[in-house]
Computed example of a mutant assay.
Amino acid sequence: MTGETDLDYVTEFRDRLGLSAIVDIHTHFMPEQVMRKVWEYFESAGPLLGRTWPISYRDEEQVRLKTLRGFGVRAFTSLVYPHKADMAAWLNEWSADFAARTPDCLHTATFYPEPGAAAYVEAALEAGARIFKLHVQVGGFHPGDPLLTEVWGMLQEAGVPVLIHCGSAPVGREFTGPEPIAALLQRFPRLRLIIAHMGAPEYSEFLDIVQAHEGVLLDTTMTFTDFFESQDPFPAGERGRLRYFGDRILFGSDFPNIPYSYGHALYALERLNLGDDWLRQVCHDNAAREFGLDRV
């Protein structure tokens, strides 16, 4: 889609569903120097990607915000994540400032298994963080690392969700997959987890986890698009569970780091033919309920 066609499709999509707004819980806004490094990695087809990944919305921050709002997105996230120690606290400071100057962004924070993690997570919670991002694949750590025990306990008690990239797509690593998450939930059964990318490619196994734990949700990020379907297709036999868990699935786009148009992410959901009510839940109602967005 061209930019104009993309906007037209998204506008028509919202109008058909009677949605005044979309809630996108998987978007990336980062310090500019970090975002540039991420884009360079994606466009060079780094080893954790396995293929070329051009960025469709490679624009300055204010342009990206204007684009997202132009699509009718009225609440979104600034998902930041460290790939090594001594980054998370600094990223949290940046994202707190970003949320303060960007009222439609849900205050986002992150953490990493390191001494002091509990202290800066507690500070982020006190500052009003509403969602945390954890990237097991990029960070290369077990989510049950002992250095995170206090953090998980704190987040369980606070009831603040953690959006976690823990599936093995696009390239699996030692600690990706459903087993570490199942083990974590054995220890902290009341955690609010949002499984990024529907847990791709271990879709069925993560749906099993959702079935077993009421506090676990899924996000649609990149799933069902031509880009993902060409490599990690969603199993046709699980369509029934998509419908059944319609109130546990949240729309995410990965904007701006997607190799296709924003409209295609929504079209990929629409062509599942799961109905308008399902689309309204996924694209707005579930996230609005999860984050108390009564006025969105």
Rank of each mutant, 00 (worst) to 15 (best):
G3Y: 05
S20H: 08
D24K: 07
T27M: 03
T27H: 06
T27E: 04
P31K: 04
M35A: 15
E40G: 06
E43G: 12
G50I: 08
G50E: 13
T52N: 11
W53L: 07
W53C: 07
Y57V: 03
Q62R: 15
V63L: 08
V63Q: 14
F71C: 10
V73I: 12
T77E: 04
S78R: 07
A85F: 07
M87C: 12
A88V: 13
A89K: 13
D97T: 07
P115H: 08
P115C: 10
Y120L: 02
A123R: 15
A124R: 09
L134Q: 11
G140A: 12
W152M: 06
W152H: 00
L155Y: 03
L155G: 02
A169E: 03
T176H: 13
P178C: 09
E179P: 02
E179W: 07
P180A: 09
I181Q: 06
R187I: 02
L193P: 00
H197V: 06
A200N: 03
I209V: 08
Q211K: 15
A212Q: 15
T221Q: 09
D226H: 05
S230Y: 08
F234K: 00
F234D: 00
P235M: 11
P235T: 01
R241W: 09
G246F: 02
L250G: 05
D254H: 10
P256M: 11
I258C: 13
P259T: 08
A265F: 00
L274Y: 00
D277Q: 09
H284L: 12
N286A: 06
A287G: 03
